[in-house]
Structures are given as C-alpha cells and as structure tokens.
Nucleic acid binder design. Structure first.
Lengths: 210, 210
DNA sequence: TAGATTGTTAATCGATTAACAATC
DNA sequence: TAGATTGTTAATCGATTAACAATC
C-alpha cells in the first residue's frame, strides 16, 4: 500500500467521500465494492484498487463498514483537521464561496474577508467585516491562516497569491482564470468555472454522434 | 482524424482555448507545439496528437496560427453558437454565475432567472426579473432555451432537472452536489465545488511527501 | 463449515511519449 | 534549397480490468 498515489485516484477520493456520507445518512452500515461500483458508475475492481492504495479498510466476505471507510477517506484528505481560511475578493463569487453551507461544517472556517474596493470594506460577508488589503500579511500571521480563497480579477490574482503565500498561507483555492505559480511547499488548485461550461457546450454539440 | 474523441482530450480543449486567447490578446500570431507545450506544461507530442483529433490545423515548418487555431477549437466546442440560458436558483451561486463576466461575451446569454422562494421573486438578477417556478416550462418553450443552470439545493435538483429537460432544455450545468440522471440526448455537467477544495486539502496534507 | 468478498497479482487496454517521414 | 515543424506511426508507460488465492 501507500507508495505513490496517482492523480487519477486522488481525484476520485471526494466522490467516494460524498457517496459514503450519503449512504451513512441513509443508515447503511456495510457496503461491498460491487454495490458501491454500481452506485458510482465505476468497477468493483477499481474501487478495491483505489482503497488499497491507502490500506486494507475492508473485510473479506463482508465488505466495508460505511462509516469507518468514510472517516478513513476523510482523514486521508485531511478533513479531520481545521483549516483557518481567508477570502480575498468579496464580489459575487466570494459571497457564494463564503456562504457555501458545507464548508464551515467540514472544518474550513472563514476567519477573515478582504477586498481592495473601498465600497466593499466594512460590509458584512458571511459573518466577517470586510477589511482592506493593507493589513493582509499581519492578519495571516496573527490568525494562523493556512488557506486563502482567491476571488479576485485575473490580472490581480498572481500578485495577491504572492502576498498570501509569502505571509505563510500553505494552500490557495483560486477562482481567477489564470494558472498561478506558487512557491515550493504551497499547494494551489484553480477552479476554471468556464471550462466546465465549455465542456458542456462540447457535449451538447456532439451528443448526436453517440 | 476525428474518430472517437477521448474524454482526456475533451477536458484539455478549454485549456487550449484559454491559452490561445491569451496569446492572441498579446499579439502573438504563430506558435509551435513546442512553445505551447512549455507554456501549458504539456508535451509537444501531446498537443499535436490532441489537435490532430480534429484535423490538420498546423503547417509544417511554421507551426500554428494562433487566431485560426483558437477559432477552430472554439468552433469544436460550439462557442461560435449562441446559447439561450436560464438560471434556476437566485441565491449566492446563482448570482455569481449570472454575473460572471465572460459568459455573456462567449455566447451564453441569460434570458431568464427563476426561484421558488417568494422573497426572491421580482428582484433583479443580472438584468433579469426573477420569476416564480410556475411558468418555467412555458418560458423554456417560448424562448428557445437550450441550457439551464441549476443553482438549487441538492434535494431539489433532480426534480428541477426533470422539469427543464422535459420542456426541451438540452444541457444542464449543475451546481448542486448530486449526480443527476438525464434523458438520452441531454448533456449534464455537474460542478462539485467541494471536490476541488477537498483535493486542495489532500495536497496540503501530503505536500511534504514530495 | 461454506459462502462471500476482499486484497493483490497478472492481463489488458488506452493514453502519452518518442521518433521520423512528409512537407511547408 | 535548407531548416523547421507538423502529422502520424510505433513504442512506452500507466491506469483500468480481470482473475483468483487469502480470509473473514
């Protein structure tokens, strides 16, 4: 188990987590790779391979305990830890992210909101008073901020990214449509909203050619 | 060329389009697969293979004309066509999507906004007056709506999806964290916002183990 | 115990990379 | 023309699937 984990596997982890949480909520206690495969449109083989990258969480002849497996996968993704998070950019996307219900529950806690625009400063977003950008670095250090959400225009994103990472932020969740470069030891994930719409457009256009 | 296009290729198309548009804006007229590969962190071979799924848009000894290639790839994704789009759910995510600047420019035109909540009805969102759900089907038929954005709670998503698809919508861009089932001939793409945050969390946790 | 289902090794399939002839 | 770079075929690599022994 646990040598190098491929990207393909990592990208499936949130899906497993979501499905297992759903099953748990429905009161299902055990599940076989066969059943889970059916529900998630995967193969049983693939599921067993994926899970075994991290260790033998199942039991021969029985399957997997839903709650236990869910918690294992959550822990693998670090969802058992608290993340102190700031939001930069209190525009439409910023609002949407800050108010997304599941994040707070999942341990991602918004501790501060920042914006450059004078008219945004002082407003209340998701329980935080929006601050100007001057005290950004100080706030990050004083509040043990580990994660920053970037909801700023594309041409500002790299500069803001540089500021937050040099102040100690270790993860950047970026909604600006640019490929950020980050220092070693820092992780960045960019959500290209437009991409998924364009893929949908592609599929609509080509849905006839089976 | 153009037999069956793999999912891996399709998922890269929006990235090509974005980079080419950027180059065009910078006034770059030609580019080789080698240069583009460097800029996009791909291999030159892969780029040539990808592009040749759709035809020989390059020129030996010269490379690709940036503008021409951009337009080809755009057309492949159907971005040269107009999409009349409705938004269902005028909450935070709905607002963010409706006001996302590039969509209107790219031919995705929001023609109507709907919400179940009485307090949302009548408000103005992205230039549309929010309507109640009663006239949904009629509106879709009368306005040639081809695409619906679902920004409703998870437990309502499938029901709304059923309504819009049976009224003639051919594409569903879903922000509810559920896997929708759609009739044949209809395409659906779900944006699991939470997934990318969880992947970021995973990367942050494991960034030490190289 | 017998039956079921995992963990894991081996086989297959598909995607990426390398190589090179075609050609601008 | 010579040089550069594509289009395309062949080689490699990695991911998915199949198979089955281990074991609960």
């Amino acid at each position: 188990m646990s040598g190098h984990i491929s990207d393909a596997v990592i990208r499936r982890l949130p899906g497993y987590y979501r499905q297992l949480r759903l099953l748990e909520k429905e009161g299902v206690e055990r599940i076989s790779s066969q059943e889970l495969a059916q529900q998630m449109n995967l193969t049983a083989s693939q599921i067993r391979q994926d899970i075994n990258c991290f260790g033998g969480f199942g039991q021969q002849g029985y399957g997997y305990r839903v709650q236990e497996l869910k918690e294992h996968i959550g822990a693998i993704m670090g969802l058992d830890e608290r993340h102190r998070m700031i939001l930069i950019g209190a525009g439409n996307i910023g609002h949407a992210v800050a108010n997304y219900p599941t994040f707070q529950a999942e341990g991602f806690i918004t501790v501060g909101v920042f914006d450059v625009r004078p008219e945004a400063i002082g407003r209340n977003v998701a329980g935080c008073v929006v601050m100007g950008m001057d005290g950004l670095e100080e706030f990050i250090r004083d509040n043990d901020v580990t994660l920053a959400v970037l909801a700023v225009p594309g041409d500002a994103a790299q500069a803001v990214c540089d500021r937050v990472t040099s102040a100690g932020v270790r993860g950047v969740w970026n909604f600006a449509p640019v490929n950020l470069s980050v220092p070693n030891g820092v992780s960045a994930v960019t959500v290209h909203l437009t991409d998924s719409l364009q893929i949908l457009s592609y599929r609509m256009k080509h849905s006839e050619d089976k």
